[in-house]
């Protein structure tokens, strides 16, 4: 009985899409300077990291990562890291890997810089937490392709735009887990600190943050993983690094090339994951 004849659902009754397009255009025209200001610190950090990592002779990052893996976890992870990085170098993906590493590091630094304070605030203030929760949900679930175009319009293409997209995607876990970590601290401990005359700041610094640290590090680990998973998508808006061989390989139906890029991403992900996880468990 009910059919498309009655209710023309394929016709939008609210022109939301037009409104959004108009709003973005208006932002691009009127607030270009604001977005350049937002972009600047990310750009500076990213460029410094990229230039720095690429300027190093290839064996230095290998040694550093191997030692880091050894300290954080043990011989097995150190051996694995050494082998994986040597393989990446032999595959001719060294520069791309360093670029990706720089992008991941830059996004994680900004995610931690924004996410931990916001998470702390949310952990201590339930109203604020309720307010930001839908925003976090949107950041995590909105398909990246939806905000890639506005990002390009606002920040143009390239590595920096890629990092900005990555920050949006990878920020929620560290906020959520910081918030969780702060709220998991036993109320008696906070009460005890207050009873002995601790100020709000001392409660935060001496009790809540140290006790929330393992959870915050777990959040950092998740953020790193999500940042790595954005690498390929960021390559769609002209970001370099390991995403480009994958995107290029797909566009030219060069499966082998895409697979090699994918392999390097996986190896990098495994190493970063194990290292940060071992740190969190300590």
């Amino acid at each position: 009985m009910l059919s498309g004849d009655f209710i023309p659902l394929d016709e939008s009754m609210i022109p939301l899409s037009e409104w959004i397009s108009d709003a973005i255009n208006w932002l691009v025209i009127n607030f270009r300077d604001v977005f350049q200001v937002i972009k600047a610190p990310v750009e500076v950090t990213l460029n410094a990291l990229t230039t720095g990592l690429n300027a190093l002779p290839f064996y230095i990052p290998i040694i550093v990562i191997t030692l880091l893996a050894w300290r954080a976890s043990g011989k097995r992870l150190a051996a694995f890291s050494f082998a994986a990085f040597t393989l990446i170098a032999c595959l001719g993906l060294w520069e791309a890997t360093m670029t990706t590493l720089a992008m991941v590091l830059a996004s994680v630094m900004f995610c931690a810089g924004i996410g931990i304070p916001v998470g702390v605030l949310a952990g201590r203030n339930p109203m604020f937490e309720t307010a930001i929760r839908p925003v976090l949900d949107a950041m995590q679930t909105t398909p990246a392709f939806v905000y890639l175009v506005p990002i390009v319009m606002l920040f143009s293409i390239g590595n920096t735009a890629g990092v900005l997209a990555t920050i949006i995607f990878a920020l929620p876990p560290i906020i959520r887990l910081t918030c969780l970590g702060i709220r998991q601290v036993h109320p008696e401990l906070i009460e005890a600190a207050q009873a002995f005359g601790a100020s709000e700041f001392q409660v935060l610094w001496q009790v809540q943050l140290p006790l929330a640290l393992p959870t915050i590090l777990a959040g950092l680990n998740q953020t790193i993983m999500m940042a790595l998973s954005m690498v390929v998508i960021a390559a769609l808006i002209g970001a370099g690094g390991l995403g480009s061989p994958v995107v290029l390989g797909l566009n030219t139906l060069d499966t082998g090339r895409a697979a090699v890029g994918g392999l390097a991403i996986v190896l990098l992900a495994v190493i970063l994951d194990r290292i940060t996880q071992s740190m969190a468990n300590k």
């Binding site: 009460e191 005890a192 009873a195 002995f196 005359g197 001496q206 140290p210």
Partner: peptide
């Protein structure tokens, strides 16, 4: 109040409330 808690009155809790870290 903070001064008072620091110097005049301290407290012992049922759950001990020791800092595990």
């Amino acid at each position: 109040l903070v001064q008072f808690r620091l110097h005049n009155m301290s407290m012992v809790f049922q759950s001990f409330a020791l800092m595990p870290h």
